[in-house]
Amino acid sequence: MGETITFWVLAVVSVSAALGLVLSRRAVYCALMLGVVMLSLAVLYAVQDAPFLAAVQIVVYTGAVMMLFLFVLMLVGVDSSDSLVETIKGQRFWAIVAGAGFAVLLGLAVGNAVLSPPAGLLGATQTAGGNVPALAQLIFTRHVFAFEVASALLITAALAAMVLTHRERLTEKPTQRALARARFLTGGSVVLPGPGVYARHNANDMPALLPDGSVSELSVNRVIARHDVEDERFPDDPKLAEAIKQAVEEESK
């Protein structure tokens, strides 16, 4: 009873999501619709006493594969839409042939399931003591070779993708230390003033500049200025010299 209700509800959801997948023009919506179809499949598995398959379906397909699709689509751009130019010659004809072939296969599979008596899961799972142990037993005994071969294939593919896209670094990446050394060796100055500051130096004895390039008297260092006045050693810049005198005068008032 519950299974039937779930099936009919999910049938509507997944078929409309599948239609949306085909008909939607926005790539991200297509990907999301595919995600809905996968989730409906997972629930159907769960209802049909295959909890492990359901969980794996969500973790692997919805969680990892679809997320990868979505990732790529999001990087491609927000408003990019599909190009509708047909690049393969006779694309439509072969698509129809393939579609018809798939329909025949689907019909045969459904017919097989409907006409032959159901074997049921109970016999398979009860001997091993549950759904998960039964699957584990099959994977690690009877199908262990196929399983390992498949994983070797996947690892090879992943390695191949990494090797093909790998770019060898010709020179070593400069470290922070190397960069600092290079800066000092080329005679560059110490740390420059932060952005948005008119000053060209951040030394204690260099006053700040106003937007028009004149010296800001407020920023003249009074301690150093007093020594300058006592020693009568003024910089060449007349404006700066004036500012230093004024600073000392103001302080002595």
């Binding site: 969980a55 969500i58 973790v59 969680g63 998960v132």
Partner: peptide, 21 residues
């Protein structure tokens, strides 16, 4: 569930969709 801990992982991986979207 016989796969209860995997269910937690599955729910976490659906939750990421929220963040991405």
């Amino acid at each position: 569930l016989p796969v209860a801990v995997l269910f937690v992982l599955a729910m976490a991986s659906i939750g990421v969709y929220g963040i991405v979207l």
